[in-house]
Design a protein around this nucleic acid. Sequence first.
DNA 1: TAATTATTTTTGTGATCACATTTTCAAAAT
DNA 2: ATTTTGAAAATGTGATCACAAAAATAATTA
Lengths: 231, 231
Amino acid sequence: MGNLALEPLDRPEGMTTHEYAHRRLRQAIMVGSIRPGESLTIRGIAEAMESSPTPVREALRRLSSEGALRVLDNRRIMVPRMTADRFSELVSLRSVLEQHAARRAVPHITERRIDRLEEIDRAQDEAIARKDNANALLLNQEFHRALYTANPEQVILPMVESIWLQLGPFLGIAMEHVAQLYFVDRHQEAIAALRKRDEDAVAAAIKADISEGIGGFERAAIENLLRLAGQ
Amino acid sequence: MGNLALEPLDRPEGMTTHEYAHRRLRQAIMVGSIRPGESLTIRGIAEAMESSPTPVREALRRLSSEGALRVLDNRRIMVPRMTADRFSELVSLRSVLEQHAARRAVPHITERRIDRLEEIDRAQDEAIARKDNANALLLNQEFHRALYTANPEQVILPMVESIWLQLGPFLGIAMEHVAQLYFVDRHQEAIAALRKRDEDAVAAAIKADISEGIGGFERAAIENLLRLAGQ
DNA sequence: TAATTATTTTTGTGATCACATTTTCAAAAT
DNA sequence: ATTTTGAAAATGTGATCACAAAAATAATTA
């Protein structure tokens, strides 16, 4: 079952073991360190994190409820396989969900937060420049998260992150087989729209960001990629 | 912490204890048997279900990831309180999400499934007629679920159900304080649109169904209701 | 050699226990 | 009467164990 590819990830004092296990596995899945179809065992993870089955089970249950893992009939747990249909479903849902999240954020946005968005976008560009795919991915998510969390009432974000989690493993093989993930984004357009508090324009920017970014994978390309990765 | 108000709920042979605990708690929350702000204890639930802490913890973790429960800083677990803002956020997201789910279902709909929708709608009307609020609620959900699951690729449904879960406890107090939950629906309109495979009309029907149904709660009414319930 | 059977190992599951923290409740002090 | 202190109870947490089912491996048979 592999070395889990889990960078240890710092653990704040007082954090419970099950929460730590959850965060660590989640991070690994999010950045594509675990491949679609790979199966995880409770004891294996417990051993890898030097803990015991009980907290690991809690972490795995949470991740399965978050769509990141699938529990099979034999009760074994694996990272879901990707298909072209599922990918299309995920991307179209992501578009709808994030447009809505963006709209609901606009009334609460502050100049201060927009400045932070600029910062994050700059950092992402740097990561892209040095071909640091994993960090570019994380910074891209950080940009979107920083926008949506302007809205103090957060019921959407967990769902958005669930989609990211479900896309993660596929992005992992994409990054492995495509030399450089094609990072186009419409962040500057979104920022400009935010400065004007133009809800429609912000939503349009997010829509374009997604459809031209991850939505750029065409059906044939996905199937080809999956075949390449032996899926 | 009360008697949990958990009707035993039949347990298929071979179902694990943690899954059973999850289903039972989930059902209770969904139909509003557990009040907002009520806190749950691992041992209490374990005792009520005649099992032990381990599987109950797994169930509670899942429910917290599904938005049905909130884990506090003191690690205690409770049903989230409702506020007018949160309610508005939930309903607007529900509208967007279910419209999208409906659209994605239309291409896969069959006459057979539409017939089943008619059946469910009839059953719901009967439940309403005999003032059986809980079952009317469940049958309403069943109607929506039966529509969305026409789409074989299901990433949306868990999110839709997460919203239902988060609205459940509030609906519980609503049913308690408003003699009869005002059940307006646009199911017949949705069915007619489905027969014509008219995606826009289906989405419009769902949108109206939600905004005239649960969306009918006005801000003042919600705050009043919460005060009445001692929230 | 291929298929079948038997054995061993792996794995998920649920109960139990000890520990630390938090909460609750009673007693004491201001 | 209110606050403070202290003891007792309740609670979340994580490790361990026994059990049953499943998977993997070895041995046997056709």
